[in-house]
Amino acid sequence: MTGASADVSRNKNAACPLGVATDGRFVPVLMLTASIMMAGGMSDDMRGVIADHIEPFDPNDEQQRLYRVAEATYLMWMSPEFAVQR
């Protein structure tokens, strides 16, 4: 997680497609939430923070997968960027 943060910081200006964190990780839940809630308009910095936060949850465990979705959705819902869009 720490390493990922450093990568995000280094690459914060990189243009990233939906569902991909700034360090290149593919994070499907980010693709979903960014698409549904923010019409794809999520900044790279925000995507990095959320990707870091949900990374420890195991995507292969059903319960943990739910946590990933819940945490990503919650942070997006509370974010300044979403406050503008809604």
Partner: peptide
């Protein structure tokens, strides 16, 4: 962990004036 993530979101520089004010108020 969740507070740390939210703190990081609030600390980010925003390109939109309303987002900046929202983050400051939060």
């Amino acid at each position: 962990r969740r507070n740390a993530a939210y703190d990081a979101l609030l600390a980010q520089s925003q390109s939109h004036l309303f987002a900046t004010e929202f983050a400051r108020t939060q």
